Amino acid sequence: MGRRYVLYITMLGAGMASFLTGFLPTYAQAGIAAIILLLLLRFAVGFFLGGEYSASGIMSVESVTKWRGLASGIMQAGFDLGVFGVTFTYTIVATYLPSSAMTTIGWRIVFWSGIITTVVAFIFRGRFLTESPEWERAERVKSPYKVLFRNYWLPMITILLATMGFLYEYYVMLEPSPFILQDVLGYSAALAGLILTVLSASDAAGSVFGGVLVDLLGGSRKALLVTALILLILIYPTMYGILIGYNGWLVLLWDFIAVLPVGVMQVYIRDLLPANVRSTGTGLGYNGGTWLAAWAAIITTLMAGASTEPGPWLPAITINMVIGSVLMIISYLMAVYLVLRRRE
């Protein structure tokens, strides 16, 4: 269908699904039906966001001829700004409503507030969004998945390894961060919440800088390798400072480092796949990468024994971060092989 029209659908779909979540009955009111409705709406949000990511990220790098990495990084930063917006909204609601009201009307207000950004973004897209030039020049295919798996299965494996690697190393630290800050380092809930809120800004900055590396280094493959090597070099000293040095603010530095590959990925995918199957490949490659990432926090926590002492967490986090970095390096080597094969 192209990037432009899909982005109209995904914006309205994700926004309306989130908005309707605010009207859900509680378990006390509707029993199992409340759970089923929640799952259906969460599935809808995931469905539309999958299309949003696959179209918006690719469109951002297809629509420019220079500074593609910067375009990719800015697009990725939008997710982080959205997270900041949600966190900020929740904080405001929690501050001005009594705690008892948060379980009745407070959480609903947070979901309803999303309709504002949905409407604003839809109007903005309607006025300024134009179709990707690369898509308009591309030959159409009737079955993108068939073409993808028949002709581009090796690039898809290359993309999957990269996305599994960076999402895995990212979630290794991100998911356990609240537990580590409060239960391991002994920070108060308020201070831990402040650090986690500022993480959104650190995320956004890291995404943009990772994208800029693509432009500065002259390609997405080099940028992926450099970000993976930066991770490998800085994993242990940063984790040592956080856990053994009891400096929770270093989580912001680590988050900046860990998110660098995110700004690279849109250009990396563009360089590996043709325009007529690129969005399909992005949706499958990026969301497929979350399959491994979904286990990151569980595996790391099991290795650390869910300890409230920092000692067990240092090797657990370091080892799993190394796994993610190595997967990205393997992907880089495969991408180099694909380039050499094309030249032959």
Rank of each mutant, 00 (worst) to 15 (best):
A138H: 11
P315D: 07
L216P: 01
Y90H: 12
I298K: 10
A30H: 09
M239Y: 12
F43W: 06
T103P: 09
L39W: 13
T117N: 09
Y337M: 14
G57H: 02
G263A: 04
G305V: 08
G210R: 02
N276D: 01
P237Q: 01
G106N: 04
I92L: 13
I233Q: 09
T26N: 08
Y240M: 10
V264F: 03
I58S: 10
G85C: 04
Y332I: 10
L253H: 02
Y170T: 05
M164H: 11
G289T: 08
A258G: 09
A33F: 15
P312D: 04
A30L: 11
G22R: 01
A190C: 08
S207T: 11
L213H: 00
G248R: 01
G311S: 12
G305R: 03
I269T: 05
E169M: 15
E169D: 08
T104M: 11
V264N: 00
A306C: 06
L24H: 05
D203E: 12
F84D: 02
G241L: 02
Y240R: 07
L302T: 10
Y337P: 05
G289L: 07
G245T: 02
G82C: 01
I92S: 04
G82A: 03
A294L: 11
S60L: 05
G281I: 03
G281F: 02
A205V: 13
L7M: 14
I317E: 01
G206P: 00
G50P: 11
F179A: 03
T163E: 14
R342W: 07
A304E: 02
T103S: 15
A275K: 00
M102D: 05
I58Q: 08
S325Q: 04
L250Q: 00
Q182C: 07
L167M: 14
R270T: 05
A275P: 00
N320D: 08
S279F: 02
I330Q: 02
P178Q: 03
E344G: 15
F111M: 12
P98L: 10
M303K: 10
A71D: 04
V6N: 13
V251Q: 05
I115E: 08
Y90R: 09
I330P: 00
F209Y: 08
I242P: 00
V61Q: 05
L243R: 01
I157A: 15
I257S: 00
R137P: 11
D255K: 12
D80G: 07
S63A: 08
M173P: 08
A34Y: 06
S56D: 07
Y53C: 06
S132N: 06
V184M: 05
L7F: 06
A228R: 00
L174W: 10
V64H: 08
Q182Y: 02
Q76T: 09
R108L: 09
Y246S: 14
P312H: 02
G31F: 03
S307Q: 05
G78K: 03
A296Y: 10
G82M: 02
Y96W: 15
W254D: 04
M156C: 04
I92P: 05
S132Y: 06
A335I: 07
A138E: 12
S279E: 09
T117F: 15
A190T: 14
